[in-house]
Simulated assay, not measured.
Amino acid sequence: MVLVLTFFAFGWENAEGSSSKNPRVLFLGDSLSIGAFGATLDSSMRAAGFEVHTVVAGGASPYYWLKNYQSLPCTIGFWEKSPTSERRLGYVRAVPKLEDLLVQHKPNLVVVQTGINLYATLRSKRRPKEDNVAEVQSLIEQMCYSISKGGATSYWILPPHSHEKRYPIELQEELASIMRRTVKRFDGEVFESGEVTHFDDPYPATDGIHYGPADAREWATKVSTHFATYAKMEPDSKPETTIVRALPLQAVPVVDGSRGAYSSSRTDVGAQRDEVDLELRLVEKSVLNNLAELDYSNALGIYEYEVVNDRRGNYPFDKIRVAHGIVFGRRHTGAANREIGSTIGLTLVPLSKYKSLNTWQVVDDLRPNFELPPYTPKLD
Rank of each mutant, 00 (worst) to 15 (best):
G115A: 07
A228C: 15
Q137S: 10
G59D: 02
L282P: 00
L175R: 03
T75I: 09
A176G: 05
D215Q: 12
S85Q: 12
K106Q: 14
E304R: 15
D277T: 06
T333N: 10
I243G: 04
E218C: 10
Y315H: 00
G208L: 06
A216Q: 02
G313P: 02
K378G: 01
F328D: 10
E371F: 11
D201Q: 14
V25Y: 08
D365G: 04
F328V: 11
S18C: 13
H210L: 08
L102D: 11
P83D: 12
Y63Q: 05
V244M: 11
R281H: 04
P239H: 12
S264Y: 10
I34V: 11
Y63G: 05
R367D: 11
S263D: 15
Y69T: 09
V103M: 08
L280V: 07
R259N: 12
I340A: 07
V56R: 07
V4N: 07
Q137W: 08
I116R: 02
R245I: 10
G313Y: 13
Y303A: 03
K285H: 09
R127T: 08
N117P: 04
G341V: 08
Y69V: 08
S146H: 13
Y296E: 11
D318L: 13
A216L: 00
R185H: 07
P235C: 05
D215S: 11
W156F: 13
K21M: 11
E371Q: 14
G38E: 02
L72R: 11
V133I: 10
S193M: 06
Q250I: 00
R185C: 08
F370D: 12
F10M: 14
V283P: 05
R88T: 03
T153L: 15
L89R: 09
D236G: 00
N369Y: 05
Y119K: 04
P213R: 04
A176C: 14
S85R: 10
H53E: 09
R46D: 12
T206V: 03
F370Y: 14
L288E: 06
P316W: 10
T75H: 04
A299H: 07
L101R: 01
L247C: 03
N309Y: 06
S258G: 06
A15R: 15
R245S: 01
L171M: 10
L379G: 08
P377F: 03
R273N: 01
L249R: 07
W12K: 10
E234I: 02
N337I: 05
L351V: 10
V52Q: 02
T197Q: 01
R217K: 15
M179L: 00
M143H: 00
E130N: 14
D42G: 08
K97E: 03
L351M: 03
A36Y: 02
R273H: 03
